[in-house]
Each structure stands twice: as structure tokens, then as C-alpha cells.
Simulated scan of single mutants.
Amino acid sequence: MHKISALQAARGLAALAVIAFHSLFINAKYLAGATWLPDMFVFGQTGVDLFFVISGFVMVLASANKFGGRGEVLGFLKGRFLRIYPVYWVYFFAVMLVFLLKPGMVNSSQAGEVSLLNSFLLLPDVNLPLVMVAWSLIHEVWFYLVFALILLLPRRWMPLVFVAWLCAILAASVLYTSPANPYLRVIRHEFSIEFIFGALAGLLYLQVVSGAFQWRLPGALVGLIGVGLLAYALASGTVDGSDVIQSISLQRALIVGGGYTLLLLALALQEFKSQWQVPGVLTSLGDMSYSLYLSHILTLSVCGRLWVAFGSVEGGLVASVVFWAISLPVVIAVGYMSYRFVERPLTQRLSRRRAGRVSAQSVAN
């Protein structure tokens, strides 16, 4: 797999963007009055859009030599399972324990209504999962299942297959409203457009770096167009903080998803061309992005409850500054500790066990 530091850094920045978005709700819940948090933090919601674009890009790069191989599908699904579920289950069981002991502390926004089985398996449901941020993982699981089927096809078919999938989502978005059935809702959701954009960008990147396609557009121009699309989305109110579980606007998927895709493609090609890499602190942030994403709402909720418990109920600008000066470093610290002592050891151990079984099967055969 091609290692691109810009993509890894983008993961970290996407996690920070989501934290910025959720900070608005935490501030409104636990502090009153003025706040230093700007309204533009609403745009941080698009950190999820960025995650989906990165996912499509990375899936293509990670599977560059696996297309058309029937024996690759099971290995791909096992790898994705080990990457997503074990770490997620650590948080699931931790939150479930709280839910069983004090139901009112979990998912209070939906009166504690949650399917534990669907949450455990990351299956679509009419309600949010027990770990609320895991709703985006449900989309990831869907993307992985579709991508596993695509792996069965020859690589030369990939552009056509992804374009056909894109056209199907575009048609469904225009012709049909978001269905009530949670499975159909995920299947036709506009988030698929952003995953497809990322996958197409990944295919183009592979063509360029292999010399099969002569890239003539200046990377700076491509990146500038991407930034321009994102700036337009921010200025025009394309992202307004509304619920994205049911659907997002087609305009948002095309403009925000397209903007992030062009920006990432430009950075990836520039990195390949000049061999530059982003600062290590950003790639480290990307390394811990999954743990940071899973833990941040829980950490902020604990910070908010402690803030209220210690009698800090007065609001205002000063209180907001103090609260976030304490809470944001705690969020990063918890995310890092989760990565360092839970995610990395767990994934490494499971990966070694999987590699050992594969080696044993190869010897036996």
C-alpha cells in the first residue's frame, strides 16, 4: 500500500473538526451565556465527509493489487473487521455498562431508546447506536461490503463500476426521499457519493504514479479549486448543522465531497512528486484519530458533568474559556491514551494472530 502522510494527517484534522462541531452542543448543554466558540464550528460537521472521502481513497490504494482476485475478498473483510470492531467494542461495552446502571446518562436525546444488538453489530437502526458517534461506522461497514464485491472485478472495470454506483446514488437522491427503512436509508445515502469520489481519486492517483496517465494539471491549481469549493460551502451555508443521519443535500455531497477530494488528490500527488511529508505531529494525530473520534463525546460529557458537579454553573465568556482550556487538552490526552494503550496493542495483537494463521495455512497447503 502507498503510504501517504497527507491522508493520515487529514484523518487527524477530520477528527478535530468533528470535535469542534460537537463542542457547540456540549457548550450549550453545560454552560450558559456567551461563548468564545465561533459559529463556523458548525462546519466541523464536515469532518465526517472528509473521513468518507479518505476511506474511499485509502481502500483503493490498499487494494491496488487485489482487484479481480476471488481469494482476496475474505481477507479484505477480515482486515476491515479487525480494524473497526474490536476497538469499537471496547467503547460499546464501557457505554453499555453505564447504560445498564444509569440509563438516563446515555442517549438522553432519544429517551434511552436503543437496540443493543444493532449497536453491537453496527447495523442500521431507526435510532442512534449506543455509542452515538458510531452511526458513521455503519456507513463505513456498508462501504466495505460493497467494495468487497467490487474487488471481484478486474481493475480495469473500476472506473466504470464506481461511476455506475455514483449515477445510481445521484438518481436515488433526486427521485426519492430518504426512506424510513434504516437499511435503505444507508444504501441510498448521499454519503456514498463522497466515498466514491475518494475511490475515483485513488484510482487516478494510482494511474499517475504508475506512469499510465500523464498528469498535466498543476497540483496547486487542483488544490486551490478544492479549497474554493469548501470556502463556497462555508460561505453559502451549505452546511447548517442539521441532522445528517437521514440524508444530506446533494449540493453538500457534491461541493464538500468534491472539495475535499480535489484537495486530498492535490496533496497526495504533490507528496509523490516532491517526496515532502507533513509534520509528524499531524500524522501522529491521524494515527490516533479513530480512538479520538470514538472517545471525544464521552470525554466531553464527563468534563461537562464534572463542571456542573463542582458548582461551576455560571456561564459567560470567561467560564467558557476556562472550561475549554481544560477540556480540550483532556480530550486529546484521552484519545492518545486510548490509542496508545487500547487501540494499538489490540490491533497489533489481532494482526499478528491473523498473520500467524495465514502463514500456518500456507505451510499446510
Rank of each mutant, 00 (worst) to 15 (best):
G311V: 04
W89T: 01
F213W: 14
Q246P: 06
V321F: 09
S178I: 06
Y336S: 04
A220I: 12
Q270C: 14
L282C: 13
L328P: 05
S109C: 05
V358D: 03
H2C: 10
F76P: 03
S284R: 15
L122P: 03
T283P: 01
L265N: 08
G335L: 00
Y183K: 04
G12Q: 05
I26S: 10
M96R: 00
L170E: 00
A9C: 06
V208P: 00
Y339E: 07
F21Q: 02
L61R: 08
R344V: 03
I196N: 02
I26T: 08
L229T: 06
Y290N: 05
D49W: 12
G44S: 05
I297D: 09
V227G: 09
G335Y: 05
S295Q: 10
L224C: 12
F323I: 12
I84C: 01
V358C: 03
L130A: 06
S5Q: 11
Q361R: 13
G335M: 01
M288P: 14
S210I: 09
I193W: 01
S312G: 02
Q275L: 10
V330T: 07
S327E: 00
L300A: 02
G104Q: 02
G223Q: 10
G241K: 06
S274P: 04
R357E: 10
L265K: 13
L128P: 10
R357G: 15
L77M: 12
G280F: 10
L61E: 08
S291Y: 04
D39N: 15
A360R: 12
V256W: 04
A15Y: 05
S242W: 11
F197N: 02
S23G: 14
A233L: 04
L350H: 08
A220N: 13
S284M: 11
G228S: 13
V48A: 15
A253Q: 02
G316H: 02
I196T: 05
L151I: 01
Q8H: 02
